[in-house]
Each structure stands twice: as C-alpha cells, then as structure tokens.
Amino acid sequence: MGYYVNVDQGVNLYVEDINPGGSKTIVFLHGWPLSHKQFEYQFNVLPSFGYRCIGIDWRGFGNSDKPFHGYTLDRLADDIRNVIDVLQLNNFILAGHSTGGAIAIRYMARHNSYGVSNLVLIDAAAPVGFANKDHANQMLNQALNDRPKLMREITETFFFQYITNPYSDWFFQLGLQAAGWSTAAIVVMLRDENVYDDLPKISVPTLIVHGIHDNVIPFSQAQEVNQKIRNSQLVPFQNSGHGSFWEERDKFNQLLNQFIR
C-alpha cells in the first residue's frame, strides 16, 4: 500500500509499504534521479521471504512533494528520520542505492544509526558522488537545459548488461518523474558534499554491493568505503555496472536475504 508522511512544513514523502506484517523490515532509498520503483524486482520477491519492504521517494522525486529547497545530505537524512519516527520503525535494515547510499550513510552518522540493525550499500555514491567537478558541471548544465537528454545518457551508461528498449524507456521515465530543480540540486550536492567523515561512525554490520563495471561510481570507491566502515563486507558483482540490484537481481536478493536473516 502507498501513503504519504509529512516530514517538513508543506513537504510530504510518498511511502510504498509492502507486506506490513513481515517479520523484518527493509527500508529502501532509491538512487538519483529515480524513485522507489527502481526496486520493483526486490519488491516482487523479498516479501515472499517474510520481509516488510518500504520504499521512500525523497523530496523532489517520484511521487513525493517537490519543494524548491532542501536538497542537502543533512536535510534528506532528516527526512528519512522523520519517516522512521512516524512509522515507529525499529531494528530495521536500511538499504540505499547510489545517492540513496550516501543519504543512508549520512543518516547513520547524523542520527547515530537510530533504529538500524544492518546497513546495505548498493553501488553507493561514497565517499564522494562526483569526483570530477567538470563532469558534474556539464551534467548540471544539461539538467537545467536538456534534462531528457541527460536522463537518456544516464540510462545508456547505467547498466553493464543488455537492457531491452521497453525497459530503457521505463527507466528513462522514472527519472523524468523528478522535478527539474531537484534533479539539478542533487548534482550540486553530489559535486560539493561527501561522506568521508561519516564512514568511521558506522558500526552496524554493513553489506557493500558494487558492480565491477560501474561507470558511474568506480568500484575503487567501494573498496575505500569497505576500508573505512568497520564490520563491513564488500561483495563484487562481476556482471554488473551501476545497476546490480537489477543486473544480478537473483544473486542480489539471495545475498540480501542471507545477510539479514
């Protein structure tokens, strides 16, 4: 079922809540510029393992409200905390993909891992998002002047494995659900912010999943994250780019189930 949670004055986030009676809860944070729908192939399977799966659309993306302000790691992490408080979640697994991984890391550091038993980082944009500032500025210019072209190029570089034209079109449309201003603001955030200081503050068991062919966030960054988070394990996905949650979805779902059960 889907519903809205108020996280700030005039800002409501959309929450997709699947199998509310599940024995354990997994909270999914999507990547930029997507929505909770990117995890369709987790939501199809994991509830059958007994899990409650919650997908949260950040402010500015998917079905959530799209205010003009509030696109910093601190604010986005605080939004997640507000959802956790309203839903009264405890002992849950927090899983973040790409920029959602950076938000998850900031949540862990800023809110002292509140309620989280396990952390899962999926092709996370960490310790930095866009290390190449010139490339980030080019993306920012595209976001402000030809956002559909930007989204098409993101789709073309996202995956290592072949995707069909219908899947490509679907993925493309997920990105276009976002507001133009929020799409651009996250590029600025990924260019100017990082989570270096957050990583040593994480102590819960952490699973790091990263495609070795990732052209968005290099695999070497996952190795660095693995070194800086104690009690973490890195699992390379040999046949994935930036979309390991889909490209090797059966392996990913089984690995996640083994990690948290």
Rank of each mutant, 00 (worst) to 15 (best):
L121A: 12
A178D: 12
W58H: 10
I80A: 06
N63E: 15
L140R: 03
M189V: 00
A109K: 10
Q177H: 04
G50N: 04
Y114I: 09
K201T: 11
L46Y: 03
A104S: 15
G175R: 02
K37F: 09
V188D: 06
G21L: 01
F92A: 10
V188N: 10
N44A: 08
L255S: 09
R191F: 03
E153A: 15
Y41E: 05
P148C: 07
V128C: 00
P236A: 09
A143M: 02
L144H: 04
P166M: 07
N118E: 13
D123N: 14
Y41R: 08
V225W: 08
S182T: 04
N239R: 09
Y71Q: 06
Q9R: 13
P47D: 10
D134I: 12
N231F: 10
C53S: 14
N19D: 01
E16F: 05
Q254G: 12
D17V: 08
K201A: 12
Y162V: 10
P166L: 08
T157D: 11
L34F: 13
M108Y: 07
Q88A: 13
A126F: 05
N257P: 08
I260L: 08
L94M: 12
V83E: 10
F159A: 14
W246K: 12
L73Y: 03
N132S: 14
G101D: 15
Q88V: 10
